[in-house]
Design a protein around this nucleic acid. Structure first.
Lengths: 204, 204
DNA sequence: TAATCATCGACCGAATCGGTTTATGATGCC
DNA sequence: GGCATCATAAACCGATTCGGTCGATGATTA
């Protein structure tokens, strides 16, 4: 593993992204080390040179991804923002910006939730228990939902917004770099529509 | 193939659903005939007995699914329905009802969009060109957008709805069968919220 | 009883698996 | 230059799995 750590940062990035992509497409068992090597642009032998085994690489990726997301949140989350739309927008921006350098993190972290192969399932459970719930918890805690019109379900609005922003990301070409300006603009457009129609008049 | 056609209908259903599920989870190349046999509840030898080759089975499934969806649309689509939400809901209902007997059709048809294996890619393109564009075209043609409040962009609303329903699908575990009823219910909930807040008062 | 047929476990050669070894060439140190 | 070090990939290893076949079995039919 020190072998990998002492690589130039951009080569590490390239290998990590290739491996994330390969694993998230096919799962642990069905992803061969040859697949990973091809996606990462190196030879199969180098994968073993850097990580020892396929399993060690997989576990490294899990820790790497959790680390990036959790670091971003603990660093940038501001719980003084209580307005519903502002809060959602903030959390979405944090997640997306955190994944800017490794676009495959999102799909990889989703894929490990449903990994069933016995060889890695145990380790996944351990990692998940530590990180995932934590994130959702602080994101929703202390939110002000009193400004909505009667009959509007904030949970539904939340779901609409989350899926809208995820849709923006997943509609991009695989190798595209996310443009934060465009993302913010698109998100803001949707937010404005919902806010101006779902908030009580006195809060507009 | 006549072997398969002369099977009892319910056994055909069971085999088709198993194969659809297996392929949509892992793609063409990474799905082994053993996987399919296990998912279908028969022996591997029977798969070859019925379909000859793995590829022949795959192509059969593509044609089977396209057939079901296109039949349903040409039969039930009503272009006199011009209301924005009713039209979207109608198209959703048609898709959902068509897939009621084979819940795995949706995920299979989604999966072939991203199939990259050279052995089947050509045939997929041919099929898609025939069916998919056609569907979207008639779905959006002649829609009445005059009932929206001023300042509401129908294209934005459509995008929100599409991403919302796509989000429902992509949030499911990789190997889960899509439940059409749940999809419809969730979709309808979102539609109701948007309609009652984005339409002019006189159209509610 | 003989013939037919659906069915599946066992099997085939070929391909691919995770992982190792070897050959090569670049680098740096004397 | 000579020598050791190291990154790298091609070739290779035994084991497994691949797509596909075959032979045995048991039920059905005639």
């Amino acid at each position: 593993m020190e072998k990998f750590a002492s690589l130039p940062a951009e080569k590490q990035t390239q290998i990590i992204d290739g491996a994330l992509l390969a694993f998230s497409v096919s799962g642990y068992k069905k992803t061969s080390v040859s697949d990973i090597a091809a996606a990462a642009g190196i030879s199969k032998a180098m994968v073993f040179h850097y990580f020892g085994t396929k399993k060690a690489l997989y576990l490294y990726l899990i820790e790497f991804c959790s680390g990036i997301v959790m670091d971003a949140i603990t660093e940038k989350f501001d719980r003084d923002v209580t307005d519903f739309f502002e809060r959602i927008q903030m959390v979405s921006m944090i997640k997306i910006l955190a994944m800017r350098k490794h676009p495959a993190i999102l799909s990889f972290l989703s894929s490990i939730l449903f990994e069933k192969d016995g060889e890695v399932q145990q380790d996944i459970q351990t990692t998940l228990a530590m990180g995932e719930g934590f994130r959702n918890q602080i994101a929703l805690d202390g939110m002000d939902v009193s400004k909505f019109k009667d009959g509007v379900d904030p949970k539904l609005v939340l779901k609409i917004l989350v899926r809208y922003s995820e849709g923006f990301v997943s509609e991009l070409p695989n190798d595209a770099v996310i443009d934060p300006e465009a993302l913010y603009k698109e998100f803001e457009e949707c937010t404005r529509l919902l806010r101006s129609n779902l908030y009580k008049e006195e809060y507009l």
